[in-house]
Design a binder for these strands. Sequence first.
DNA 1: GAAGGCATGTAATGAGTTACATGATTAT
DNA 2: ATAATCATGTAACTCATTACATGCCTTC
Lengths: 183, 183
Amino acid sequence: MPEPRTRKLTATSYVVLGMLSYSPATSYDLKQWVANTIGNFWAFAHSQLYDEPARLVADGYVAEEVEEGGRRRRTYSILPPGREALREWLSSPTVDQTEVRDLGLLKLFFLNFGTRKDLLQLARDRHESHRERADAYEDQRTEIVDYADRWQVKTIELGIRYERCVEQFWSDFLKELEEEDLS
Amino acid sequence: MPEPRTRKLTATSYVVLGMLSYSPATSYDLKQWVANTIGNFWAFAHSQLYDEPARLVADGYVAEEVEEGGRRRRTYSILPPGREALREWLSSPTVDQTEVRDLGLLKLFFLNFGTRKDLLQLARDRHESHRERADAYEDQRTEIVDYADRWQVKTIELGIRYERCVEQFWSDFLKELEEEDLS
DNA sequence: GAAGGCATGTAATGAGTTACATGATTAT
DNA sequence: ATAATCATGTAACTCATTACATGCCTTC
C-alpha cells in the first residue's frame, strides 16, 4: 500500500501559508492583502485564493471554520504543520530562476516584424508604465514603512529599484531612437 | 448560428509566431531557440512548444508539413494570417503589467517567520545567482552582437541591467546585515 | 426601495507542468 | 555493438483564467 503522496506545494501555497501566519483570514482578506503587496509582482487570480486554502485544508496544513448562518463564510487559520512547512520552505535553497514575464520585452524581441511607429509607441508606453509603477511603490513604501515588518519593506525597495532600472532602460532607448530620427 | 469564436492568442502563441517568422522550424528547433533567448526570462516547457504550434495550425495561422517516412517529423511554417496576427499584436498597446516571479522575493517577504540564518543564506544565494546570470548574459551578448538583430540585442541588454540591479540589491542588503551582526 | 458596488463563491475551459516513452545518432 | 545522449512526441494531471452568479450593504 503506497503512502498517500503529499503534493508538492506551489508558490501560491506559500503565499497563503505566509499570509495566514500573520492571522486567520477569509479568502477575501487574502485577496486584499495579496493585491496590495506581492500581488504587485506576482499576480494571483482571486479564484486561486479560494481554491488554494481549500487544498491546504485537505492537506492538513490549514483549518477551516465555517460561519454559522448568514453567508456561511469560511475563515482559515494555519495549523502547526502549516507553520512547519513554511519554515522548511524558508530555509530550503532557492534554485528556481527568476522569471520576468514582460510582454513589452517580448514585443521588443520580435520588433523587426513591426513598424518603427510600433517601436516608438512601445518604448513610450513602457517607459511611462514603469515610471508610474515606481512612483506608486514609493508612495506605498512611505505609507507602510513605520509599521510593516522590515523584510516586507525591503521587498518593496527591490520593486522600486527594479522599476527605476527598467524605466531608465526605456528612457535611454527612446532617446537613442529619437536621435536617429533627427539625422 | 454563432461565428466559430477565434481564441485569444497567448504569449506562447506569439513566441511561436515570432520564431516562425524568421524561418520554418520543428518543435525541437523552437525549443532550442527559445531556450537561448527569451526562455531566459520567460520559461516555456518543451511540451508547450509541441502543443502550441498544433493549435496554431488548427487556427489557420501556421502550416504543418509532415516528413515522409523516417520519424515523420513535423515542420511548421507561418502563413499570411499568422504574420498578420503578429503584426497586429506588435502594434497593439501593451497593457498587462510585468510580472516578476521570483521565489527569492517571496521568501524575503515572509522571512520574519524564518531564522536569521535563513535570511543570510537567502541573501548570499540570490546575490550569487543574479551575478552569474548577469555574467552569462554579457557573454551571450558578445557572442551575438555582430549578427543577431538589433532589438534582440536590446532585449539582452535589458536583461543585463535587470540582473545587475538585483545583484546590487542583494549585495547592499547583505552588507547591511553583516554590519548588524558585528555590532 | 432601487441602483451600484463590494464580497463571496462555483463552473467551465484552457493552459502549463511533469512524467513517461521511444526513435535516432554519436561516441567508445 | 552498446551505452549515452539527443530528438521527438504523448498522456495525465494540476493549475490558472475567465466567466458566471448572487448575496449583502450602502447611499440616495
